[in-house]
Design a protein around this nucleic acid. Sequence first.
DNA 1: CTGTTAGCGCGTTCAC
DNA 2: GTGAACGCGCTAACAG
Lengths: 343, 343
Amino acid sequence: VTTNVSGAAAIPATRRATSTDVAREAGVSRATVSFVLNETPHQKISAETRNRVREAASRLQYAPSAAARTLRKGRSDIVLCLLPHAPLGAQFGGFLGELSARLALDGFTLLAHPRPNDDERTTQLWQRVSPAAVIAFDDFTPEEEAINRALGIDVTAVVMSAEAGSTSGAGFSNRQIGRLQARHLWSTGHRHLGYAFPDEGRYAVYAGPRLNGVEKFCVEKGLTPPVRHTMALTVASAVDALRQWAAAVPPVTAICAYNDNFALALLAGIRHLGLTGPSCPAVVGVDDIPAAAFAQPPLTTVAVDSAADARHVAESVLRRLEGRRPRRRAMKPTIALVRRESA
Amino acid sequence: VTTNVSGAAAIPATRRATSTDVAREAGVSRATVSFVLNETPHQKISAETRNRVREAASRLQYAPSAAARTLRKGRSDIVLCLLPHAPLGAQFGGFLGELSARLALDGFTLLAHPRPNDDERTTQLWQRVSPAAVIAFDDFTPEEEAINRALGIDVTAVVMSAEAGSTSGAGFSNRQIGRLQARHLWSTGHRHLGYAFPDEGRYAVYAGPRLNGVEKFCVEKGLTPPVRHTMALTVASAVDALRQWAAAVPPVTAICAYNDNFALALLAGIRHLGLTGPSCPAVVGVDDIPAAAFAQPPLTTVAVDSAADARHVAESVLRRLEGRRPRRRAMKPTIALVRRESA
DNA sequence: CTGTTAGCGCGTTCAC
DNA sequence: GTGAACGCGCTAACAG
């Protein structure tokens, strides 16, 4: 990484053109400029005048000031996306890109803000930018919800909500992920599952619902409950957990990992212990990162279609933003099992 | 991933507090409110009044409108970070977080925008937010630079510039990464290197300087030039490339991979071909992703301290923003070799 | 000393 | 097609 910071050149920045400039250039009033450029309906302005205005605008490279417009309309075109402080997965860039692209189609601008640890200033952020909508990865805190209401930001979306119970939010997809992991292991004959839970607290929001999905599946099929072990992202920690699963009664024969990284750690632990044949537990990950396919053995995992998720989120938000009825149905899970050799 | 889009509740949104509200509540004028909350120097306002104002502000949850402030001052507190459309690495979340945290310390707000593919609208973006500074990952296009000037945005930074030659920009760190890979292989006795170049064009910006670093090192040490092969992120592609490197005269004995993912693919290819002993090439990656430590064999790689890089970028930008002299020295590379078993 | 009045910045929109 | 007011915070000039 390298920086190239450049500052003001000798050229004094030309003052940017305002609507007054355009009005003068076209020989009309500022009101007319506004009507023409916004194509305000129910305004009768001659085609000739309209052309003059448009030409003047492009000649001057006029672009309306977002600040002034926002001030007047009380709301900006910005959709704010709050990022969790935790390092996000690989598909996350694609998710944001897709979200941005879809929102841009309807004239909205996606701006992402990495939440600093101290949330002090963060809560003030959307008071300052008056976004049209706020999209959060984690759930909003009660204070944040209060602020949303207080500011009249009435469109909010939570990606991966932790709340269990509600139909639309509810960590629905994360539970589905857990279910799918368990279902696959069950369908390949395993009856005693383990769950590799991440030791970093900030992942708990996602890990909880995933584990929950596994647990519910086990109940439904009458399996023993999954044996949960918390582990760090190290081979030593994986070895530790593997020993405990092996020592459980009845012994755990297959493990759902929180994600591919933890699954890969388990695979490394298995090699370290030299487990083979029936004593070698099956492992399923989540994410289908590139490394999953290159692991030894290649990792079976649950792939998430983050682009589809992004489109779904964008649609939901746009629906509300444009005053259309929100969709009733919850989104279809966009997950799929990628079967390789580890399970 | 799951969404929970909520709309306006039955509660009519309370109008947000403005400085007028605070002034009324505190029994002072709006000017006083402004002076107190901004701690404007050379203003003598009694401690008692100040307290009244501050209390009123917090009671009303007052936060100044960014739009109004920006309109007046002609510049916002926002530092815009333009993200490439390509999926970014894992440390990227941490990079943004660190950047955000550091800028927040000085009152600036980092907002990241994932650039859509069609750059049409991108140009309108910073007209919308009138950022105080723009940080880009890729280089600016000439048009974008023109816009920067036209809008009077005089502080810009490029992370990982592709331009070779300049001291401060110049893909300096990316070249250092390539150098470090090559140096390590050289120091372990290898004399004929290969380079695994990514097939996706959007990575070329970073891959070019890295390869360049390897090439320059080879020239300096009198080695044969690195043999470059473009590969996809698949085992088949890796196998293909490995065969060609083995068939080269003289045969390539060690490979610098664009990043860890490509390195892991090569490791998988090596296992697939059953290469061992002297016929097994050494492999060095870049990034030190978690999977690197769990690979078979564990992957030797170049770790990048993205947090340090973020701090550096933040410092550079803040220096300019606050009118201090830009630093002369280019940043120190924040990279380190992580020695494992693959090389 | 302590605090106020008034006008600005720029696009939007109602009333004429 | 236009005049004028408005949204909100900043700040120079000024008054008690």
